[in-house]
Nucleic acid binder design. Structure first.
Lengths: 193, 193, 193, 193
DNA sequence: TCGTAATCGAGACGGTACGTCCCGTCTTTTC
DNA sequence: GAAAAGACGGGACGTACCGTCTCGATTACGA
């Protein structure tokens, strides 16, 4: 009985949950990360403000989840290609999502909030960075192992450079996150100059 | 440029100007960039709020100037040394200022504001980035010319990497901006892996 | 009218409402109408500034309601007496409230704001003047009907004179609104010279 | 030499003085009494703010003088006519000035300021009211003496009523200060009902 | 089929900072 | 050496959101 109740409640909550994430993404699309107040998102989702606060401690936490959902479809290409090529294609796909959805906007906002909010800093660090950087590290390690990358010794360093370059670009000129930038970033990180 | 400045700063009180910058730096030290409200800075500087708004369009603009003043003493070492060494020593000196003054705190705050504020983005880009990155580019160009840096072709790329790594570190773990990090960043940017 | 009120005051806290009116009256007592800032009243009522702005469009609107509440206990004496006597007693009671509460102070302030603020002008006109003048007109009409007031033809004119004399006195020398003044005003308005 | 200097200063001052009064009247015409800030008047008069503060302690004092200048041309008609007629013609002329210049606007503003400012209250009382009411009292006294006004005993009372009615009308509906109102006010004050 | 308890929308609430306006005084610069 | 131009400290304004807290209407369940 309890389990059944819980299930039903969960199901209902899940629908709300999704509509809130959608509303958050839409709001970021329409008015940008910063102007997307909790109030606006709640209204958009046809939900009470409290319902949002019940599940996420802050706007940043909500948007972290929204961001993850938006980029969840971007995966690293298979090992049939060179490391350099795989990374390039991955970044191109990622940037495509950034510009076609509000994901770029959201990531920029989250990066901005890290500066001021310790909680957000930790959350982004553990909930986003680690996980994303491991996606990059794997192909680089494979490239080192295959001898493709003669100059690279530490895969973490290279992944770090890629992420750092993307973040900086997001802050300075987000619309320039294009194919050309993807290639430059990968080459710079892997020592192809 | 001088004439333009003179026109814009007509009759501005130099003493107030300084006391406001000092108060801003002090406030960032005491309570951090974000909690440093204009009201607090004005009170600290014993100045009316309007006196700040008269000369700076935003908190970010005020802190950009404060930041520049704080790091103005950090200069690139002379050409007696290798490029790698010069960059390392420069960064070590810079990070020392970051941790001993509120400069690191402020730069983090500014980077955070870039995400949300187009005006700040432009200002930081033109008022900080260009000028700082040229400081880095010069020694790298010298290193390329002297044959010290065999692998590096484009100095701008390397300077970009250094700045990107610093920014990312400021956002994630500012207190880790130390000598070790300086060496790693320079080596990563110059292809010494 | 009740339904309309109910719609507009949906979920308004009666306790806050009262505490705000009380705080406004107290503030006017302590520091006068003009120095009673919204901020001060809010602090006095232990209420956020926005809670006041949510329900009243301006300080004048708030004080109009405060005034009405303060004078709501002053009523026209019964018809057992002559018109002249009734009006006199009514004014004496009114002036007593003026001097024992902040009502006089407030009315003076409202009159002052009428000069500068079109909105206030309308509000005072419809919300105060019409309703108060009808209180005066009734006994005068009764006096005309009973033959007591041979010289008076238009009751509105007499009521007008009484109100005008009170307003002018409030502006010039509020502390002189006493029994003697009440008698003079009534006699002047009714043609007993 | 001193005398010559003084004369020159005085002459210069007199010109400024006039230009300030003109600017004040113009500003009241254009934007109303309340929005006529000292800054605006100073700019309009091509004069420093301080120059105004040197001669007048407050905006009200400045406008009191401006008002007097504007209505200085309105005088009581000669004794060839009845008291009632003289007063009526005087008021009609006064109201004409009110509507054709900013005098009405200004008087309304001054009345409004009386409520809040003790200094203004005194100034208007002594500098305006006494002097104006004596203008009204004279013809009423003459009317009483000639037997024209059988019902009127105290001239001051009647003058008071006229002024009170005008003030109230200025606050409530200034544009209704017309010939009809002049007649009604005079008749009400003199007991012609 | 109906009460009744949980849920949730709607939004009121105390609070904080914002950026603006104007006051009346003080300072600099220009004529 | 006077006065314009306007910088200055100060203080209230009305607004925007924050995150918390009621209040009712709706709903979905057990009787």
């Amino acid at each position: 009985m309890v389990a059944e109740n819980e299930a039903r409640t969960r199901r209902r909550s899940a629908a709300k949950h999704k509509s809130i994430l959608d509303a958050a993404a839409l709001a970021a699309s329409n008015v940008g990360y910063d102007a997307s107040t909790i109030e606006l998102i709640a209204a958009q989702a046809e939900v009470g403000k409290q319902t949002i606060y019940r599940w996420w401690p802050s706007k940043a936490a909500l948007y972290l989840e929204t961001y993850k959902q938006l980029v969840s479809g971007v995966t690293m290409p298979s090992t049939d290609h060179s490391c350099r090529h795989r990374l390039q294609r991955f970044l191109v796909a990622l940037f495509s999502v950034y510009s076609h959805t509000s994901a770029g906007n959201i990531l920029g906002g989250l990066i901005g909030e890290m500066a001021s909010n310790l909680e957000v800093r930790k959350t982004v660090q553990s909930g986003l960075l680690l996980e994303r950087s491991s996606i990059l590290i794997d192909p680089i390690r494979a490239g080192i192992a295959s001898g493709e990358l003669g100059n690279v010794i530490r895969a973490e360093e290279s992944a770090d450079i890629i992420i750092a370059l993307i973040w900086k670009q997001l802050l300075i000129e987000p619309q320039a996150l294009n194919t050309r930038f993807a290639k430059r970033a990968v080459d710079a990180a892997l020592g192809y100059q």
